[in-house]
């Protein structure tokens, strides 16, 4: 059921901006409309463009927000979350733990 729902109603996750909007729901309790407007504002695009895979592919690379395909020389995983936390101004639990353990707080 996960795939049909994601394809017909989902935001697209890392293909687009779904993970970013999800983080605003999770950390700020924003409803979807508000969360989309917030993320679109941070990215400098319209809310309609948030789910455009072509636009978001370029934007995610430009802003180091991670790309759906894995390319050498680009941020991945926890490195990407550093940029997401900065862009959205939110705390990411695993990133805080990483920084604390690595002594880079």
């Amino acid at each position: 059921m996960a795939i049909p729902h994601a394809m017909c109603s989902g935001m697209g996750g890392m293909r687009t901006s779904g993970d970013l909007v999800a983080r605003m729901q999770m950390t700020r309790g924003m409803k979807t409309v508000e969360a989309k407007a917030f993320v679109a504002g941070k990215l400098g695009i319209s809310t309609a463009e948030l789910t455009d895979a072509v636009i978001m592919r370029e934007l995610r690379e430009d802003l180091s927000l991670g790309t759906i395909r894995s390319f050498g020389g680009f941020p991945k995983g926890i490195e990407v979350k550093h940029h997401i936390a900065d862009l959205l101004g939110v705390d990411i639990n695993s990133l805080n733990i990483f920084r604390n353990r690595a002594g880079v707080m």
Partner: peptide, 12 residues
């Protein structure tokens, strides 16, 4: 297969 209108997508 059916899908929501563009712009109406929600979080999974």
């Amino acid at each position: 297969i059916n899908g929501v209108e563009k712009g109406s997508e929600v979080i999974m």
